[in-house]
């Protein structure tokens, strides 16, 4: 009895997940098809670049400062125990560039920009503005989705680069305070041991994360049903979808580019 109910729930939920994943994939194909011939609404693109990029800088800088400091706090016990001060820059840089930076900034970006975008598109959908666009013979994919996907990829890459650097500043400040390591020591430990490949590894990831966040947020925004309640639910689904995609794609990219 309980088994049957559990299986039914599990089946229904897998179906829903499969439907949404399929929907996101179809949206990806439609976006790709809209890129030939390449034409884009420049105004929509600029508006979104400003809104998604420039205005996310404060939250990304704050997050990155804390994350950098946090990395040092985590390493501190280990470093004190073994006196491995030369490794702090290396360890922090490796973790921040390759994993922590792209993932945490990606999650924050999804929470701020992805969620915002879902809310905007969902509001447009429930107030029939998408139908209005179609009735004006304007393709919503080409006009709304394509510039947003592009803007989110560009913004997330830029923000990840900024965040990586700010996290290093946070790490330098923290290691000076708790471990008495000079910022330059940390810097040399980093540049001596890490290559551009480590840095680029994170940049590639942020590119893919940006696309995933954009597609998830646009998909759930455009398929919303049911008024104000529906808008909230769509935002919820979009951020969850983005978080799962980020973790899954991170795994995939780590394997593929290792």
């Amino acid at each position: 009895m309980i088994l049957q109910r559990t299986l039914t729930t599990l089946g229904a939920r897998s179906m829903a997940v499969a439907r949404d994943a399929g929907g996101v994939f179809v949206l990806l194909l439609e976006v790709l098809r809209s890129l030939v011939p390449p034409s884009m609404d420049g105004r929509e693109l600029m508006r979104n670049l400003y809104k998604m990029g420039y205005r996310s800088v404060p939250i990304v800088v704050l997050t990155a400062l804390f994350v950098g400091a946090l990395m040092v706090v985590q390493l501190a016990a280990f470093v004190k125990q073994f006196g491995a001060t030369a490794l702090v820059g290396w360890g922090t840089g490796y973790a921040v560039f390759r994993e922590v930076g792209p993932i945490l900034i990606g999650l924050m970006f999804s929470g701020r920009v992805g969620a915002n975008n879902t809310a905007e598109l969902a509001t447009m959908t429930v107030t029939d503005q998408i139908d209005g666009l179609q009735a004006l013979a304007i393709d919503p994919i080409r006009y709304l989705v394509v510039p947003r996907v592009l803007a989110m990829i560009v913004c997330l890459v830029a923000l990840t680069v900024i965040g990586d650097l700010v996290a290093l500043i946070g790490a330098m400040a923290m290691s000076q305070v708790v471990l008495d390591i000079h910022p330059l020591t940390l810097w040399y430990s980093l540049v001596d041991n890490l290559s551009t490949a480590d840095f680029l590894h994170g940049v590639y990831k942020s590119m893919v994360f940006g696309a995933a966040i954009a597609l998830s947020s646009c998909y759930f925004g455009l398929t919303v049903k049911g008024g104000a309640v529906g808008v909230g639910r769509a935002v919820n689904a979009a951020v969850v979808g983005a978080a799962v995609s980020i973790c899954f794609l991170d795994f995939l990219m780590t394997y593929l580019t290792a």
Partner: peptide, 28 residues
């Protein structure tokens, strides 16, 4: 109306994520 709910949801995600990061730092 629906814009308000969307904005509140967005603010909640970003606010609670940030709270987690700050608390993590403080407690660590």
């Amino acid at each position: 109306s629906s814009e308000g709910v969307g904005a509140a949801t967005t603010a909640a995600v970003i606010g609670s994520s940030f709270a987690v990061i700050v608390l993590d730092f403080i407690i660590s």
